[in-house]
Amino acid sequence: MVLFFIFLSLSLVWPTIVADPSLSKCRFAKEFSTEDLVTSPSKREQFIALAMEYEGRFNQPSVGYNGPSGHTYDSHLIDYRTGELQTSFNANPLGEIYVKAGNESVNSETRIIDILTRKISTYEKFRETYPGYGGYMPWVTVNDTGIHPTRGYQNPYQCPSLDNGELIWALYLTYNVLNDRGYGALGKRYKSQFDTMIKYGKMMFYEGNGIVSGKIIIKNASATPFPDNYAPQGSYSLDDPYEGELFTVFLDLFANWGSNESDRDAMWIEKRSQLASVDYETPRGPITV
């Protein structure tokens, strides 16, 4: 899932690689061996080119994202006989920065910037409409007018930290790449979104004693964030060393801990019980991970 936003970086900064026409079919992976990818630079380039080409075909309005809002769809039902799309599903936070690279005619830099402009406008509208979310995203419905929390994330309003931990690093990558490519004004808007999440993340999700809430209740989604507006939803916390660690790393690096360094360390102590080494067996012997 984190790979979704890696395509943005690839599409803006990686040199164009032309796919071998003889391999241009969606089940191209069988044409490559592990040995090819390990030892042959040209094979690796062809594999990347094909992967980006077919991923890029998904990046179309009404397929991968909603055109007017620029917001990504979570998934679609499809007719397996015809390949035609049927129902589109709601989007979750970790799919939001989803600009896939591919054929230059489909995904030019101009088009990518247009999509990113639409996306950040949608984020800004959501922040204005629901300031109580502090820049964070619930699962949302997507349509031409923008995004709104799904019914399952209303009454009460709720917000997950795990999914947003992935979105946060997508935003970080996005504004840095935009700045590097000379799109400073657009990059500034993405950084504003990132900075808003820095400002309120600890207030909203950190319970104390090393515990980071996995999901919170927002008592008033229309209010500017304040501490008493948030409460944990149940006992779910980010004590895992896997997906949930992305949000913990974010809090560690960017939240304002002041003199409470012990709380900062406590987040990592809280995870220790979940850590266990495992030997992964390979032809060349075990690797401890």
Score class of each variant (00 low, 15 high):
1 M>N: 07
3 L>K: 05
7 F>S: 14
11 S>H: 08
16 T>A: 02
23 L>N: 11
23 L>F: 11
26 C>A: 15
26 C>V: 15
31 E>W: 04
33 S>Y: 06
39 T>M: 14
39 T>K: 15
44 R>S: 15
44 R>C: 14
52 M>L: 15
54 Y>V: 12
60 Q>E: 14
64 G>Q: 05
65 Y>C: 03
65 Y>D: 06
68 P>V: 00
75 S>D: 11
81 R>Q: 15
90 N>C: 14
91 A>P: 08
98 Y>W: 12
98 Y>H: 12
101 A>E: 12
110 T>N: 15
112 I>C: 10
114 D>M: 10
130 Y>N: 01
141 T>V: 09
141 T>H: 08
143 N>L: 00
143 N>S: 02
145 T>E: 06
149 P>Y: 00
152 G>E: 13
152 G>Y: 06
154 Q>V: 07
156 P>D: 00
156 P>G: 01
161 S>K: 01
168 I>H: 00
171 L>W: 02
175 Y>W: 11
180 D>N: 11
181 R>I: 09
181 R>E: 09
182 G>P: 10
185 A>T: 07
189 R>F: 01
193 Q>H: 15
200 Y>Q: 01
200 Y>L: 02
201 G>K: 00
202 K>N: 09
202 K>I: 13
206 Y>M: 06
207 E>L: 14
208 G>H: 08
221 A>M: 02
224 T>S: 09
232 P>F: 01
233 Q>P: 07
239 D>Y: 11
244 G>F: 03
246 L>R: 03
247 F>C: 02
247 F>G: 02
248 T>Q: 06
251 L>E: 08
254 F>I: 02
261 E>T: 14
266 A>M: 13
266 A>K: 11
269 I>K: 14
272 R>Y: 09
275 L>G: 05
279 D>L: 04
281 E>P: 03
288 T>A: 08
